[in-house]
């Protein structure tokens, strides 16, 4: 179980540049990992490789016992439904209610007729409501997503991921479009489910202090390469300089 990448590489331009370059990493179930790096370093690409939304690259990537790089169709769907994804832009359907947006996380668990008609099983609806309660949106079930604030929308999106009862949650800069106070709310929720439900969390973070505060392990990418993997305390100035320095050639 867990996640294991061996010599994982991914290029979007047939090998001229690499978004992921020879990445080797092992992540066990229940870890809370912050992913850092400059813009374009490959953080999003790494997360999207884990749930197979990027077309597979080379090397092997084992997630929850399956090799993602060879999966397709049904088996890819059955992997994805165990992985929640949280986006920077929330990616809610704005004209639907909070509850309807959360129930989207149950489609992969429901028969086709139920998910298409929206007649979800009562147990699914109850779970969705309970999950909305748990992220502090009790009684807001029927509110349209577009009428919620940014922070509330992101909590709906978190509920949508949680309702999948996932083993892994991937969060791609989930706080980047929220103000700093709300960032902590989002990370508090993720930390809580990590503790209580032993869900593996991988979160891309721009703000270093937050990464340090919440993660027990930090990994850093630079130009697709994994340049740091360790405890937050091990992040020295010299290493940070290596991760974050901007060389003139790339500008």
């Amino acid at each position: 179980m867990g996640i294991k990448a061996s010599s994982l590489s991914k290029s979007f331009d047939e090998g001229k540049t690499f978004a992921l370059k020879n990445v080797n990493i092992e992540i066990s179930q229940g870890e809370f990992i912050a992913v850092i790096g400059l813009s374009g370093a490959g953080k999003s690409t790494f997360l999207r490789a884990i749930n197979g939304t990027n077309s597979p690259g080379t090397g092997t990537l084992e997630v929850l016992g399956q090799n993602v790089t060879t999966l397709s169709g049904k088996s890819l769907i059955s992997l994805r439904k165990q992985i929640g994804f949280i986006f920077q832009q929330f990616n809610l359907v704005k004209s639907l209610s909070a509850l309807q947006n959360v129930l989207v996380g149950r489609t992969a668990y429901s028969p086709l007729w139920r998910s298409v008609t929206g007649c979800y099983h009562a147990a699914d609806v109850a779970l969705a409501k309970k999950t909305l309660d748990s992220v502090g949106l009790r009684g807001r079930y029927d509110e349209k997503a577009r009428h919620l604030s940014g922070g509330q929308q992101q909590r709906v999106a978190i509920a949508r991921a949680l309702v999948q009862e996932p083993k892994i949650i991937l969060a791609d800069e989930p706080m980047a479009s929220l103000d700093p106070k709300l960032s902590e709310v989002v990370l508090d929720i993720l930390a809580a489910v990590n503790q209580q439900k032993n869900i593996t969390i991988l979160v891309n973070i721009h703000v270093l202090e937050l990464a340090r505060k919440y993660a027990k392990r930090i990994i850093a990418f630079r130009k697709g390469e994994l340049v740091f993997d360790g405890k937050p305390e091990a992040l020295t100035e010299a290493i940070l300089e290596e991760i974050y320095h901007v060389d003139k050639a790339t500008l």
């Binding site: 939304t53 990616n91 809610l92 639907l96 309807q100 989207v104 489609t107 298409v116």
Partner: peptide, 22 residues
């Protein structure tokens, strides 16, 4: 907006459900 489509896909939804809800 392609965002919801991506969200549905990531949650393991099939093509028809994605069209229906995203």
């Amino acid at each position: 907006d392609p965002g919801p489509v991506e969200a549905l896909r990531s949650a393991g939804a099939g093509k028809l459900s994605t069209i229906r809800w995203a």
